[in-house]
Nucleic acid binder design. Sequence first.
DNA 1: GATGAATGAGCCTTCATTCAT
DNA 2: AATGAATGAAGGCTCATTCAT
Lengths: 224, 224, 224, 224
Amino acid sequence: MDATVPPPHSGAGVEDGDRQPTRIQALNREIILEAALEVFSVHGFRGSTVDQIAAHAAMSKPNLLYYFRRKQDIYRAVLERTLRDWLVPLAAIDPAGDPVEELRRYITEKLRMVAEKPAASRLFANEILAGAPVMGDFLETTLKELVDEKAGIILEWVRRGQLAPVDPHHLIFMIWATTQHYADFDVQIRAVMGERVDRPGFREQAAQAVLTLVLNGLKPRPVA
Amino acid sequence: MDATVPPPHSGAGVEDGDRQPTRIQALNREIILEAALEVFSVHGFRGSTVDQIAAHAAMSKPNLLYYFRRKQDIYRAVLERTLRDWLVPLAAIDPAGDPVEELRRYITEKLRMVAEKPAASRLFANEILAGAPVMGDFLETTLKELVDEKAGIILEWVRRGQLAPVDPHHLIFMIWATTQHYADFDVQIRAVMGERVDRPGFREQAAQAVLTLVLNGLKPRPVA
Amino acid sequence: MDATVPPPHSGAGVEDGDRQPTRIQALNREIILEAALEVFSVHGFRGSTVDQIAAHAAMSKPNLLYYFRRKQDIYRAVLERTLRDWLVPLAAIDPAGDPVEELRRYITEKLRMVAEKPAASRLFANEILAGAPVMGDFLETTLKELVDEKAGIILEWVRRGQLAPVDPHHLIFMIWATTQHYADFDVQIRAVMGERVDRPGFREQAAQAVLTLVLNGLKPRPVA
Amino acid sequence: MDATVPPPHSGAGVEDGDRQPTRIQALNREIILEAALEVFSVHGFRGSTVDQIAAHAAMSKPNLLYYFRRKQDIYRAVLERTLRDWLVPLAAIDPAGDPVEELRRYITEKLRMVAEKPAASRLFANEILAGAPVMGDFLETTLKELVDEKAGIILEWVRRGQLAPVDPHHLIFMIWATTQHYADFDVQIRAVMGERVDRPGFREQAAQAVLTLVLNGLKPRPVA
DNA sequence: GATGAATGAGCCTTCATTCAT
DNA sequence: AATGAATGAAGGCTCATTCAT
C-alpha cells in the first residue's frame, strides 16, 4: 500500500543500527527477557499478551515495545537465549569417559538446570506442543546433529559391552523426558505430593530415582 | 421457561432441560469434542479460538455455541472426558499380580493409549503447563488418591523385595514422563529421528526402550 | 508463527464463500462503501480511520469489519467501484462523430459526474497524490489503453483538419484537469467565490467557461 | 526561565527567545522543511508521520522536535513558506500589459514553478482536499483578495474587447487546474505516457498545449 | 437445529510528544 | 544541539459471545 516511502520506525527503536547497547538498554532487555520467560513459559506464545510481559517487567507496554518491536521478537529472543544454554550438558558427553559416569553427569546436570530454571523447560515444552513454529529449524539442524553425534557415542559404548543394549536415541529421549518432567509437570507433582515437594532433599530424592532407574537399566548385567 | 430470561444453569445450550439428547445432538457434541481436542491440544486454552474449533468441526460458530455455551464449557468437557479414560490403566494395577508384570502391563497400556490419542496427552500437558487452572481440583483429589493408593502397593512390593528400592511416587512420575513424552514432544522426536518415526516398528522399538530401562532398573539385583 | 493451523476467521465473515449476498448484506456493503467514499476522499487512505467510516455508516466498527475484513479491502472496493463508472464518458467518444461535438459531450458529461459525485473525484486525487499504490496497475493498463485509443482518434481529427493542431494526450489531461478541479479544489473555489458557488447557475457558468476555453482553442481557425 | 515550567508560547523550540538563530539552526530548519515538504506532499498531514520526516531529514525525531515542537508547526511552516512564493506570478499580472502576453507569462511562470517544485503543488492539493484546515483562512483572505483584484483586471480586458468574453474567476481556476495538474497527477501522467515523460522537450510540449488551448480560446475572434 | 448479523472487550502496534541527559 | 528512553492515546484487527430469525 505504501511502496514509495521508507518503512516507519526507521528513526526509532533500539534494534536499529549496530551500535553498542547502552547500560540501561542491556539492563532493560534483560528484565524484559526474564519477564517474557515467566509469561511465555506458562501460556505459550499465543496465550500470552504483551501487557502481561510489560506488567511482569514493571514497564509500560510501549516502552517494552521500544526494546523489542514485536511480540514475536521477544519470544524469539527468549527462546534463542535459552537454547544456547540448553544443549551444553549434552554436548559435554565425552566419548572417552566412563559410560555410566558420563550419563550420570549428564542427567545430574540436566536436573540441576531444570530445577534452577524450570520456566525455560516449560517454554520449550510449550513451543514444541504448539508444533515448534519458531524452533523447528533449530530442532532439525543443530539439535539433530548433536543428538546423532552423541547417539553414535552411546552406540559405540553398547557395542563394546559397556552398556546394556539400548537404542541410543530412545535413551536420550527418556533422559529428556524424565528430567524435564519435574519442571513441566510441576503442578501435577505438587498436587500429588503436596508439601513434600518443598521439603529439603526432594530434589535429591528425584535425582536418585531417575538415576537409579535409568542407570540400573543400563548397566550391563551378568548373563542371567 | 421465559425466553427473555437467561437460563439459570451453567452448562446451558442443549443440556438445558431434562430431555434426552437426540441422536443428532449426541453426534454433534461428539464432533465438537473431537475438534476441540485437536485444537486445544496444540494451542492450549488461551491460544485456541472458537473459530478454529468450529472450522475443525465443520460447523458454524453460533451452532457450536448452541451446544456449548462458552469456550470454557467445551474445554472442560473435553478435558473431563479424557480424564475418565486416562486413569484406567493405572487403576488396573493389581496388588496381587506379579510386580514387574503389572508394571509392564501398565506401561504398555499407557504407551498404547498415548500412541492412539496423542492429542489427549498434549491436552493434559498444556493444561498442566498453564498451571492446571481447570484440572487443579481433580489433580489434588481424585488423582492424588489413586496415586497414593498405587504408591502404597508398589511400596509393599519393594518391602517384600519384589522390586528394587525405588520411591514409588517417583517411579510413577517417570512412567508418566517417558510414556507421554512420545506424544507431547512428537515434533521434536520427528525433527531428530526424521522419517524413521513413520517406519513400521517404531512404536514397538520405543516401547522396548522404555520397558528395558524402567524394568531393568527395577528388577531386584543380585547383591553386587 | 503458526503454520500448523488453518488461518483464523475461516468460519466467519461475509466474504467467505461464493454464496449470494443476502439483502441486508448488500445493503450494508452499500452503506459502508458510501461512508468510506466520504471519508477516504477527504483524508486519503492513511489519514482515514476505520472508526470514522464506521461512524459515517452508523455502524459499530467490528460490524463494519464483518463486511470488509480490512481497511484495505474497503478502500480497494470503493476505488474499484468508482473506477468502473469513471471511464464511461471517455470510452463513449465516437470516432465517427463530429469532433467538437464529441468533445463537448465528453466534457459536459464529465462535469456532470464530477458535480454529482465530487467525492469520487477527490478519492482519485488522493490516491494519485499518494503515488497510486492501489490504482497503479489500473492506470498503466486499462487507463493507458483507453487513453491511447482515444488519443489516436483525436490525432486523426487533427490530421483531417477538423481540430486545431494539439497534442491529443495533453488535450485529454487538460480536460481532466479542468473538469476535476471543481471537485478537487472545491474548498478553494468556495473560499474565493464565496456564496456565489451555491447560487443556481454556477455549475452551468463553470461548464460554459471550460467549454469556451477548451473548444475555442480547438476549433480550427482561419489562417491568420 | 524556570526549567521545570513549560514555556508559555506556542511555536516553542528554537523560536523561543529573541536570539537570532545560529547558522546551524537555520540550516537545520531548512533541511527539516525540505524533508517535510517531501513527506507531507505525498501523504498529507494526517497520513504523514514525524518519523518519516525525521528519516528524510536524516535527523533524530527528538532533535527534529527541538526545532518544531509539534507536527502541526512543521506543517504550518512548510505550508506558509510555500504560500509566499506561490502567488508571486499571479500578483505580477500587470493591468497595463498586453492581456494575452500577461496571461502567457503567468501560465509559463506557473508551469515553471510547478515543474521545479512539484511537491509544493501536491502539498497544496493535499491540504485543500483535506478541507484546508490550516490554509482556510489564507484562502478566504489573502488569496481571495488577490484573485478578486486580478479578476477585475481581466474583466476590464474583456470589456475592452482585448479578450474573448470569459468569466475571469473561472479563467483563473482553469489556469490553476491545468498548470498544477502536471505536478499533482504526475503519477497518472507517467502511467499513461510512459517514458515519454522523461524525454527532453516534454515540459515544453505540455506548456505549448496549455498555452494553445487557453490562449486560443481567449483571443478575441472575428465575428463568426 | 442452524446461521447471519452484531458488538464489547481486548490485543498488537504505531505515533506524537515529553523527559532526562 | 542532540539523543536515548519513556508514555498516553489512538488505530487496526480479533475474539467470545449474544441476538434475531
